[in-house]
Nucleic acid binder design. Structure first.
Lengths: 111, 111
DNA sequence: TCGAGATATAAGTTTATGCGAATAACTTTA
DNA sequence: TAAAGTTATTCGCATAAACTTATATCTCGA
């Protein structure tokens, strides 16, 4: 396997990771988990989605190694694996904020 | 517009931004632009995709405020708008690296 | 071990996105 | 202004991902 192929493989995984973040419900789930571990029921209630949706999204996060599931009796508690994920999301939100601000300025200057 | 709705709007934009990163070719384009501004032709050659594909991906980056296009004669030069985007991508890559390392360790321990 | 609560999965549909090929539009030079 | 080079768009197809509803699985307590 040459370097070019390796780069492509890694870049594909990098993109897959971004795809795992590209859903508003999963972002809300991650920020909720960043506060403290929670059960599926708690997460479902907190972000206001149906239980099967929460379960599916949590599965995506699990499969990408972003969240970890632990059974506690009849509940399953999810927790955030790597807090740097929140750093990355926060940075992206800052980029977004400035991007929107630039657009707003453009709008003002047009008047 | 209440706070709940506002949070959802922002979270949707946050997810849209992540979706813009969720493609290997766009990630390669962003890292290339992080080095220095380049024309479409140069980018096309550097990451080895067809020209229409490069143009389409660059349009996505433009529309999300991540890249900026400047016409230089018959060329169009693209540049990275916000270097913090690369910080975020680097952080995600570090998260990915550790995630893969954990999986590799699990595999070893199973033997 | 049976019922209830908690979580996960399946099915079917809809929506979105990427690609390749063809072509259009814009800019400079002859 | 016609030709050549550069970049952008369109079209048709294929793949993938999300949602809702229904159902299955798992765990605990009676």
């Amino acid at each position: 396997m040459n370097t070019q192929q390796l780069t492509q493989e890694v870049t594909q995984l990098h993109a897959d990771l971004c795809a795992a973040l590209a859903d508003p419900n999963r972002i809300l789930l991650l920020y909720a988990l960043a506060e403290k571990p929670r059960t599926v029921n708690e997460l479902t209630a907190e972000i206001g989605i149906l239980q099967p949706a929460a379960s599916r999204h949590l599965k995506v996060l699990r499969e990408h190694g972003l969240a970890r599931a632990t059974r506690l009796g009849q509940h399953v508690e999810y927790s955030l694996v790597d807090p740097r994920l929140i750093d990355a999301l926060d940075t992206l939100r800052a980029v977004l904020r400035d991007s929107l601000a630039r657009r707003a300025n453009l709008m003002n200057e047009m008047e």
